[in-house]
Design a protein around this nucleic acid. Structure first.
Length: 412
DNA sequence: TCTGGGGTCCTAGGACCC
DNA sequence: TCTGGGGTCCTAGGACCC
């Protein structure tokens, strides 16, 4: 088997774009965002600044840190342009996020040269045509290619020769593996496992005892360099959601009702744009002490109507608050819709001639019609032209909607 | 008065059916 | 009356990824 899988990953993407757009920021520690760090440049990461960190903590670590507002539409445009360069060489591209993709070039080496040559060309073109650094890993499997690109960063290329895979893998720390986060890393450390090589020497049985069946099995396979995953160019979405951090707000209707309506509005519109409906609605309530609780309900019939989502979410949040009467302050509300299907909604909801159901079906149709009208107006005049929630939420300290959109996965 | 936001997958217990 | 087991679905929580 030849190494034909590429993993291409733009380096410190948002921060690199800001340094591209504003030359005075180059070579300096910068952070995109303000209240919370959405991205940090390599110069800032050297001080320990990380995305997700509060702006205040970041400034503590790096007093000369420069905060910049994000140019979100530029991120989308430049991320798309970089991925487009990859697709110039093969249609077998699996985009993982705005700044990252796998590609398999097995079928196009006769046209463009060896996989490593293609990787060099892609890196050069992204640098010259777009102006951004991108790291690439080349290997026989997705797992190895992904690790290789991490090892290559920043702005590097690492090729894993199929003959040297275990040598490459086994000296690396376990946390470079896909699926090993802080919790798994510390559980493994407790039994003395810090490298992938040490992981490979641990029996699958003891890994399963330590980490559970699925995780143990997966890590055992990956540490032995067995990765069966194929490049998948299409992913069917399994859920769509939205959440909003609130700072600290009283757990009262005047707070949660407009927030839930706004979140339902966003989710419903996204689902309807793709003719999707969902059966399960899950709400998340996070209290002031950061403890989070979820409640969900599965409906007999899928829905995408904003008003349905909002009413169900409200009812679920009320049950949470009733169960935690001592929690008077909430810090986050979220809604997620899952069990997605292609728009069975309206047809299946019709009453089939049963008069008793008439009022119900009329309500369903009225809601669908109202949503359709809102969607149409927004298509022509923009999101802010109509709808509820957004105005009321207004000046909140939460992240701009443009940033949310960047994080959204495409629904299919 | 400061810990974002959008996702996937897994686990464990209980309900319910056969 | 007591006891058994497997399969599926639902719910709540959690780890992890970008």
């Amino acid at each position: 088997m030849e190494a034909t899988v590429l993993h291409a990953d733009l380096d410190a993407f948002y921060a690199s774009v800001e340094q591209l757009l504003n030359t005075s920021l180059r070579g300096k520690p910068i952070a995109v965002g303000g209240g919370v760090v959405l991205a940090a440049s390599y110069e800032a990461k050297a001080f320990g600044v990380q995305s997700g960190m509060s702006g205040r903590d970041a400034r503590q670590l790096c007093p000369q840190l420069i905060f910049v507002n994000g140019h979100f539409s530029e991120y989308q445009r430049l991320g798309d342009a970089a991925i487009k360069i990859v697709t110039d060489y093969t249609p077998l591209v699996e985009r993982l996020s705005i700044d990252e993709a796998f590609a398999d070039v097995a079928g196009c080496t006769h046209l463009f040269g060896s996989p490593s040559e293609i990787a060099r060309i892609i890196r050069r073109r992204v640098r010259v045509e777009i102006g951004l650094p991108i790291s690439v890993g080349v290997a026989r499997t997705k797992h190895l290619a992904k690790i290789a690109s991490q090892v290559a960063k920043p702005d590097g290329l690492v090729i894993v020769d199929p003959a040297g895979e275990l040598d490459f893998l086994h000296d690396l720390p376990v946390e470079l593996m896909w699926g090993v986060g802080p919790v798994t890393k510390s559980r493994l450390a407790e039994v003395g496992v810090r490298t992938i090589g040490q992981l490979a020497k641990t029996s699958e049985r003891s890994l399963e005892r330590l980490l559970g069946h699925a995780a143990g099995e997966k890590l055992a396979a990956l540490s032995w360099n067995r990765d069966p995953r194929q490049i998948k160019t299409k992913h069917r979405a399994r859920s769509a959601g939205a959440q909003s951090a609130l700072g600290r707000k009283p757990a009262e209707r005047r707070v949660f009702q407009p927030t839930l309506r706004h979140l339902s509005d966003r989710i419903g519109a996204r689902l309807r744009a793709k003719s999707l409906c969902g059966r399960t609605i899950t709400v998340r309530v996070r209290f002031a002490n950061l403890r989070a609780v979820t409640r969900s309900i599965t409906l007999p019939t899928p829905t995408s109507a904003t008003k349905n989502l909002a009413e169900i979410a409200e009812a679920l949040v009320r049950t949470v608050l009733a169960q935690y009467p001592n929690e008077s302050t909430i810090s986050l509300l979220g809604i997620r819709v899952s069990h997605l299907t292609k728009d069975a909604d309206l047809q299946l909801d019709l009453p089939l001639g049963l008069d008793a159901h008439r009022p119900h079906s009329e309500r369903v149709m009225a809601r669908a019609a109202a949503d359709g009208a809102v969607d149409t107006i927004r298509d022509r005049f923009g999101w802010e032209a109509i709808g509820y929630g957004s105005v009321v939420l207004g000046s909140g300290r939460s992240v701009p909607d443009e940033f949310r959109e960047l994080a959204e996965h495409e629904l299919l």
